[in-house]
Nucleic acid binder design. Structure first.
Length: 619
RNA sequence: GCGCCUGUAGCUCAGCUGGAUAGAGCAACGGACUUCUAAUCCGUAGGUCGCAGGUUCGACUCCUGCCAGGCGCGCCA
């Protein structure tokens, strides 16, 4: 794959400047600091000369002039200027336009993609749902982030394994199972018309309700005793005892318990499949905790043999965290020989290394687990040099709602499906208004109006709602704790998904009113471009591969999201300027501008697709 | 108590390996529709970058201390 124009320009600039710096007497130029000047009028790429002042014992201003005079030409360079101790390069805009448009037209599917990391394998774990309830807003951020990051990593060449870990065992699962066993009366998702994950979640909630009732009764009978819910559950509750017994039965492999468990899990998976499909997510590898919870014991044995873990008198195996620069001791095996959370994670990591041998493993998990991963990676590194280093915790902040933090007890948890329903309904309402407006406008002009079908409108509303949700989440850096605002997320104005989609839809309208180009016009036609607004648009356009690479390397999709917003803005300025009206443009401007529009359309679609966002052809 | 993260415009957030005059969006105010879809665009106003030191030719960015908020520090996951 040949380097993208933006990379060629950067590389050309770097080589030329390096040569010039050496020529004026600096043997090692070091890392060059190339960045666009603050004012676009000063040039396209600038370099400060201050670092060489001490070495050369000359003023930066003078050095800049010397370097500027010595900078050799390279393809695309138009002018070199010295200003205030900076060397500023100006690119040949005719060249940039011709090459940039050719690039966008010819690359198509491969647009923005690169082979920087080709030949490297990477495993990314995300989602990690529990099988006792539907996924909520927190999972949505995880899913959306995981989807975008895995797309981005794939775009820069990685062979990406998308992995999910299903938390399908434990006391919380037994709670919903027990409630179903006692109160379900044989109902099924099919018999009730309830989506599987919600169906099971209802019993989880029911368990909690019954438990509270039981506790109230107990309190009434023990008026003088203080009790908290957890103690009641483990010590006094009949339901609690039954749930714990069920967990023991499950672990013993009791056929009846296992059958119920499998049945209820199946219902949940059917529900999850629908939610994942809606979000556009698929996985290549799925681990089930019911399977992984027994892993890791061999790892512990290895650690004991290596002398990095120790067996305490009570039988528990621990690791002194001072070995990895942390305080305290971490238990790896309980005194009864069973494993804990981190033991499973160690075993699961080792198994994944064996199965895939990835160069990198990324865990998309909320930031409350920062410490856990610090310990996990530290231990992995102790056990096998290089293993821990390959791992990375992509930590992200919590999602709040406008009215505050989500709390399941207060019923302020928003589940993924209803959230998407709500957003899509809001988008639908707006679309219908829009159609009505268009109908009126057409009537005024005496034109025929072909109303879109309900199905068409609904399909668009779905995509618009999705774009709002995904863009809202992805425009922030992962670390930022965000407050999800439904209205704001699907707002047509501002930095939103629908805004980007609207600019895309407008292109179709242009192409309909003009004609759709199938091939890139000749260079002589393209030379008709050159207004400041056109130049601004194309300069933004060619930055796309950089935005993708940066977003991928920093595991930060917001880099790309923000770039796409700026791109859409640049296009909207172009579109709205009366002097750039394409229908009214004379040839060859008209054709050249159509080519520019199509290039924009290709880039925007490719970029949004990396974020997991589908475009709509019409809005 | 210890560790990690955050603190930038009224609000929500960007700000790359330190570089030229700190940027967006929303809200506010003022403009642009006989339209290639105004779900748009153009403009105005708004900031002692939490505070105090330090390093540097140069600090929102690096270091130290303090203040405020969040999260974590289980033989839970």
């Amino acid at each position: 794959m040949t380097a993208w124009l933006v990379e060629r320009l950067h590389r050309g600039a770097e080589q030329a400047l390096r040569a010039a710096i050496e020529k004026i007497g600096v043997s090692d130029a070091g890392e060059l600091r190339l960045s666009p000047p603050t004012e676009p009028s000063m040039g396209d790429l600038g370099m400060p000369c201050h670092p060489y002042a001490k070495l050369l014992r000359r003023a930066p201003k003078q050095i800049a002039e010397e370097i500027a005079a010595q900078t050799p030409a390279f393809p695309g360079l138009a002018k070199v200027e010295a200003l205030n101790g900076y060397v500023n390069l100006r690119f040949d805009m005719g060249y940039v336009m011709r090459e940039g448009l050719r690039e966008a037209w010819s690359a198509d599917q491969k647009l923005g993609r690169s082979d920087v990391y080709v030949g490297k394998k990477l495993l990314i774990e995300f989602s990690g749902p529990n099988t006792n309830k539907p996924q909520h807003l927190g999972h949505v951020r995880n899913n959306v982030l995981g989807l975008a990051v895995s797309n981005l990593l794939e775009a820069v060449g990685y062979d990406v394994v998308r992995a999910n870990i299903i938390n399908d065992r434990g006391i919380h699962i037994c709670k919903s199972m027990l409630a179903y066993q006692r109160f379900g009366k044989g109902a099924t998702p099919a018999s009730t018309g309830r989506k599987g994950d919600f169906f099971v979640g209802d019993y989880y909630v029911l368990f909690d309700k019954k438990l509270r009732e039981e506790m109230e009764t107990w309190k009434a009978n023990h008026p003088n005793e203080e009790i908290d819910a957890e103690v009641f559950f483990t010590k006094h509750s009949e339901l609690g005892a039954a749930a714990q017994e069920m967990l023991r039965m499950w672990e013993a492999g009791d056929p009846e318990t296992r059958t119920l468990w499998e049945q209820m899990n199946q219902w949940v998976y059917e529900g999850f499949d629908a939610t994942y499909a809606r979000l556009g997510i698929r996985f290549d590898w799925v681990d089930y905790e019911s399977d992984t919870y027994i892993l890791g014991k061999d790892v512990v044995e290895k650690g004991l043999a290596m002398g990095i873990f120790e067996r305490r008198d009570d039988g528990a195996v621990v690791c002194d965290l001072a070995k990895i620069g942390l305080e305290g001791k971490k238990v790896l095996l309980r005194s009864d020989g069973t494993s804990v959370y981190i033991t499973q994670d160690l075993g699961t990591a080792m198994r994944r290394f064996e199965a895939h041998d990835p160069q990198r493993m990324i865990y998309v998990v909320a930031d409350e687990q920062n410490y856990h991963f610090q310990v996990l990676f530290g231990l992995l590194e102790l056990l096998e040099t290089g293993k821990g280093e390959r791992c990375h915790h992509l930590s992200y902040g919590m999602v709040d709602l406008p009215h505050g933090r989500m709390k399941s007890r207060e019923g302020t948890v928003v589940d993924a499906d209803h959230l998407m329903d709500e957003l899509e309904a809001m988008a639908l309402e707006r679309l219908q208004e829009q159609v009505q407006k268009e109908r009126e406008r057409a009537e005024e002009r005496g034109e025929d109006f072909v109303a879109p079908t309900d199905q068409d409108i609904k399909g668009r509303a779905e995509k618009i709602g999705q774009s709002g949700l995904k863009y809202f989440i992805l425009r922030f850096g992962p670390q930022t704790r965000i407050r999800f605002n439904p209205e704001e997320s699907i707002a047509p104005e501002g930095e939103t998904g629908p805004y980007a989609l609207y600019s895309y839809a407008r292109i179709n309208s242009i192409l309909k009113k003009n004609y759709d180009l199938t091939t890139l016009p000749s260079d002589t036609v393209l030379d008709a471009l050159g207004t400041p607004i056109e130049i601004a648009l194309i300069k933004t356009l060619i930055q796309f591969p950089r935005a993708v690479l940066e977003a991928a390397e920093q595991l930060n999709p917001s880099r790309l999201a923000q770039y796409l917003f700026h791109l859409a803005q640049a296009f909207s300025s172009f579109y709205n300027d009366a002097d750039h009206n394409i229908v009214k443009s004379p040839e060859p401007q008209r054709e050249a501008r159509l080519a520019l529009c199509k290039a924009f359309q290709k880039v925007l679609r490719a970029g949004l697709s990396l974020l997991g966002i589908d475009v709509v052809e019409q809005m």
